[in-house]
Amino acid sequence: MKKIFIKEEYCIACRLCEIYCQVEHSKSKKILKAFKNEKDILSRVLVEEVGYNSFAIQCRHCEDAPCVEACISGAMQKNKNTGIVTCDENKCVGCWMCIMACPYGVVKRDLSEKKIASKCDLCSDEEYPVCVRNCPNEALQFKDI
């Protein structure tokens, strides 16, 4: 499968990945409409920054995914064919076991409507994840593993 690789040496902490992720996961998918009309859209990618060091991190779609193992509702599943780990929002009850289990800290609480876990879905409808496509310095790369 293809995964997102993090090249922290190229990350300039511009946070464009976060912006594009939020837009992609908004209802309108339009940056201004999303900003004006939609509240609390979570970015599923997160820029970590300490001093001059920074990198963007999102779900690693682990082989033995701890979030899938911890999920009590069967919402968090790893697709056998694509390898993508996704959270079925209908099944998710917001118990936060995945947040407890994820060693990368990349699952968030989405409280905007019904409580659900929010995480990177690799923008599976798109050819490239939007964070990768819009990274101006190629600090995120989408490659076969």
């Binding site: 701890p66 936060w96 947040i99 407890m100 289990a101 994820c102 060693p103 990368y104 800290g105």
Partner: peptide, 14 residues
């Protein structure tokens, strides 16, 4: 606030 709790779990496990 339980954000990123799993990171601590990772630190424990490793």
């Amino acid at each position: 606030n339980i954000d990123r709790a799993g990171i601590y779990g990772g630190l424990i496990k490793n």
